[in-house]
Design a protein around this nucleic acid. Structure first.
Lengths: 224, 224
DNA sequence: TAATTTTATTTGTAGTACATATTAGTTGTA
DNA sequence: TACAACTAATATGTACTACAAATAAAATTA
């Protein structure tokens, strides 16, 4: 038991409790700092430390004179800071890389649930552009766009936000090999074809094959 | 452009930059608060606010007298606060629920990569216990244990930590229907059998069927 | 040498004061 | 009256100081 939360941490939880008890809604304003400090029985310094922690989690936003208002907490607020700080260890990076592979294969059902013409057109557009270029960098950009469109098509906003983060992350930390495009077994065209008139199960099999190079490269990307 | 970061936020980034520039490693100690405040040119109050924000992200740990030491940032530190705060909106909850389904289906390859006797035995143990009880609550607990074991078997620590969070989350926010067990198409036994002598593709198909009730209940769990 | 007490240092907390930005009100002019 | 410019009030942002509490390291004792 080495818990012993610091007062700022306790205050952080107290504030959340206070919000819940008082039934505050999104957009509502909290009492001003001096009042809230008195209510919770802490100094304003500590209160501000707690508020600062809640702010990094996206629970609140504060503006001079207007005060502190409740906002919808954003999971990715904090994650982003971590991912872009460059302090993630290799294991954590590999974990995230794997998670992305799982998600791309596992999202099949949701793609078919939200299959809409606009998405299919967007995917086709990417494929058309791919067929008109040989530039490696451009192809990489298009590949990211293709998969990014799939995430959007999943209809899961949190997931979409997450993968946007991962994109920026792996662009720096896990650059692709030059021959990634050549070695692909299943093309984007095939994937789109299955999306149009296939099944989730078929899509999963195809996507697994499409990502085959990613699976194979994992060992070299994240050596022991 | 409503950027205008507060000084504490700027300081937070300054600290990360300082760490990177000085080449600090995990476990290294930062300068003491007074020194660091002077180095960065801010008051100790502001510095502490910045440190507090970094602490909630798991970048640092501080102890009286010993000072501030670098730790491996923990993505789930902040996520946990958000998930357990009870302020998540329905959309975000549904998103997370969906993500879990994706992961369980998408993790197949990694299960086969890390297939070890101890995991298979643990799974078998759960199944044996399931066969000896009819109590609904016990069965729910065992079901969670079965799937939790799978996450562990995936060899992905971040993922395992994540699903532990989700378990506590959905235990409160998305309780099961009473008939969930009866309606399952594919049993845990079948899943284990496939793990022993099947393929990732086969496992994905089976897991999708196993989770069928979850997919079907989503509409009632998270109504529009 | 080992156990115990002391002390020195560093984080944790509080109070106060003032700077700064923004809203609301007030005045002044057409 | 309407509208602009200025003024005052107010809440957050920042800084400084002082002291409490914990604990690692040094000193003391058995």
């Amino acid at each position: 038991m080495q818990k012993e939360l610091t007062l700022a941490e306790q205050t952080e939880k107290k504030i959340l409790k206070y919000i819940a008890e008082k039934g505050f809604q999104l957009g509502d304003a909290l009492p001003k700092e001096n009042e809230l400090a008195e209510i919770l029985g802490v100094s304003r310094v500590i209160l501000r430390e707690a508020l600062s922690r809640l702010r990094i989690l996206g629970f609140i936003e504060t503006k001079r004179k207007r005060g502190t208002v409740l906002t919808s907490p954003n999971i990715f607020y904090g994650i982003k800071t971590i991912l872009t700080s460059g302090t993630l260890d290799r294991d954590a990076l590999k974990d995230l890389y794997e998670v992305r592979l799982m998600l791309e294969i596992g999202m099949a059902d949701f793609l078919f649930m939200h299959r809409e013409e606009r998405y299919l057109e967007a995917l086709q557009e990417v494929i058309d552009e791919e067929n008109m270029t040989v530039d490696s960098e451009t192809l990489t950009r298009l590949d990211i766009r293709f998969h990014s469109t799939l995430y959007k098509m999943s209809g899961n906003k949190s997931l979409y936000a997450f993968q946007n983060l991962l994109n920026t992350l792996f662009a720096t930390y896990a650059p692709r090999r030059k021959d990634w495009k050549v070695k692909q077994i299943i093309s984007h065209e095939s994937l789109l074809e299955i999306l149009k008139c296939g099944t989730p199960d078929a899509f999963r099999v195809a996507m697994r094959l499409h990502l085959n190079t990613r699976f194979e490269n994992m060992g070299t990307l994240f050596p022991e």
